[in-house]
């Protein structure tokens, strides 16, 4: 390989002095070799090797302190989840319960699986762009952390909640923001507390419109467009095919008028590790 083709990152400067430098090459492995060529010696060595293994396991059985089992649900109190652990996506609210989301939609755009859907208030209280619902689909999330990385306002972070098992898949669709309304910066400019209150509308984790409904609307629009294309004979897919693929996307039939009838908001127990999407009042 010629020098001009070497990836520039392959030889970063500045570390050569610290590290011992390249050395070493191919070494033949033999490993702990048991020569079992002789007959009597073979039996003796074989038995010795077996006893060696039994010594290892015997040492552990003799010392119960080597047990590493954790008694999981009982040790919730002492369980320490690292702060960077990607459990449940959380939406940052400040001390007043205000968020900083400006609906720039970078996270929605960068999410590889489209597991974030943001809806905008039709008519903002203070500005044109105000957050209505920030919807996170845990069922589609791969926990790649990209949304957290790209958010310019540090609104998103991953919390430690890892106990996200539910019996109904639709319960994996969360609304993360505590209220629909303008950002903390705008609200703090309002001197009147009542004006602030009026600008905000509370949201809870399972309030509508859920992402499924939002997607259903998008799908309906796309189906219309596809039908129009098919009528002109330019679409790759037949409307029937579209119907089929649409049916596979959603667990519930579309379209649903009004809020999708998800089961009533399950009271999320506030135990450590549970999904605490509603951590603001």
């Amino acid at each position: 390989m010629s020098d001009d083709l070497v990836h520039p990152a392959a030889t970063p400067a500045g570390t050569a002095a610290l590290l011992p430098g390249p050395s070493g090459g191919a070494v033949a492995v033999a490993g702990p070799w048991l020569d079992t060529a002789g007959s009597v010696g073979a039996v003796r060595k074989g038995i010795a090797s077996l006893l060696g293994g039994m010594r290892v396991t015997g040492r552990y059985v003799a010392r119960p302190s080597t047990v590493v089992t954790q008694h999981y649900p009982e040790n919730r109190e002492t369980l320490r989840v690292p702060e960077r652990f990607r459990g449940a996506l959380r939406f940052h609210h400040d001390a007043d319960g205000y968020h900083g989301c400006t609906v720039c939609r970078i996270c929605e755009d960068q999410c590889p699986n489209r597991s974030i859907v943001i809806t905008q208030r039709e008519k903002g209280a203070l500005t044109k762009k105000e957050l209505d619902t920030f919807i996170w689909r845990l069922d589609a999330c791969t926990f790649c952390n990209t949304c957290v990385m790209v958010c310019p306002f540090n609104v998103l972070h991953f919390g430690p909640g890892f106990e996200s098992a539910v019996y109904d898949r639709r319960l994996l669709v969360y609304t993360l923001n505590g209220y629909a309304g303008p950002t903390a910066a705008l609200l703090n400019k309002q001197a009147d507390p009542d004006a602030r209150k009026a600008a905000c509308e509370p949201r809870d984790p399972f309030c509508g419109p859920t992402v499924l409904q939002a997607l259903a609307e998008k799908r309906a629009a796309r189906r219309k467009a596809a039908e129009a294309e098919a009528a002109q004979g330019v679409g790759l897919k037949s409307p029937a095919a579209f119907e089929k693929s649409a049916a596979r996307t959603a667990p519930d039939p579309v379209p649903v008028p009004g809020p999708v009838p998800v089961p009533a908001p399950v009271p999320v127990p506030t135990q450590p590790g549970s999904v605490e999407a509603a951590d603001v009042g």
């Binding site: 552990y60 047990v67 089992t69």
Partner: peptide, 13 residues
């Protein structure tokens, strides 16, 4: 139980 303790576990609990 014995298998568990050979393997640094507690076994049925």
């Amino acid at each position: 139980k014995i298998a568990a303790h050979f393997q640094c576990r507690v076994g049925p609990y």
